[in-house]
Design a protein around this nucleic acid. Structure first.
Length: 210
DNA sequence: GCGACAG
DNA sequence: ATCTTGTCGC
């Protein structure tokens, strides 16, 4: 917890990413049911076509339990190991979890960004904290996530009539830009294509190497 | 004390 | 996250 308070100082909450983003990657981790075995994967997609270009992975064991608020300590090691398998780092990383929308403003997306120096955004399926006003049912509508009078992220409707996703700043990307990317990565489904690709990858790999 | 709690 | 049956929709 103290480590989060310290590392958060390194987070860059404004745009400091390449002018032309060519590749966007998604990261995810899957766990085996009755063991500590896990598999992490990074799915690199072409930023324009959203087609998968490459998959990198890492097989290992969980070294930290799941504790809300300390989630990054559980997933970060494996994700970093998978990222090391990549010859060319992606221009942007999309995380399956919170970034700034965290009790100490240092969720997985922030931690991964600071640890790698890469631009990152957090795109979670559910809310960890904060409140938001009712938002319209159409794709693209959003409401800021507020916590103690501070904007910590956004509830964004990526698909009409579907539940929103929770976008927040990770590192080197503003909330405005993060929102734009979240929308751009969800032309068809509720979750970003990056997250979907990484999710599919880890599940396949977990079955194979069981 | 009780419930809530990213994946 | 993972475990699971039935069910609704394209």
């Amino acid at each position: 917890m103290e480590q989060q308070e310290s590392l958060r100082q390194a987070v860059i909450a404004h745009d400091e990413l390449p002018n032309d983003i060519r590749t966007v990657a998604g990261v995810d981790v899957a766990y085996e049911k009755n063991s500590n075995r896990l598999v992490a994967a990074v799915a690199v997609l072409d930023a324009t076509s959203l087609k998968v270009i490459q998959i990198a992975s890492y097989h290992g064991e969980a070294t930290f339990p799941y504790i809300p608020g300390l989630f990054s300590f559980r997933e970060l090691p494996a994700v970093l190991a998978a990222l090391e398998q990549l010859a060319a780092k992606p221009d942007l990383l999309v995380c399956d979890g919170q970034g700034f929308a965290h009790p100490r403003r240092f969720g997985l997306a922030c931690h991964l960004g600071v640890a790698t120096g890469l631009p990152t955004i957090g795109c979670a399926k559910t809310r960890l904290l904060g409140e938001y006003a009712p938002l319209a049912a159409d794709r693209g509508s959003y409401q800021n996530l507020m916590d103690n009078g501070e904007v910590i992220g956004r509830a964004l409707r990526t698909q009409t009539d579907k539940n929103p996703v929770f976008v927040s700043v990770g590192h080197k990307v503003s909330l405005e830009t993060a929102t734009a990317w979240a929308l751009r990565l969800t032309p068809t489904y509720r979750l970003p294509e990056t997250t979907r690709a990484a999710d599919h990858a880890v599940k396949e790999l977990l079955i194979q190497c069981g």
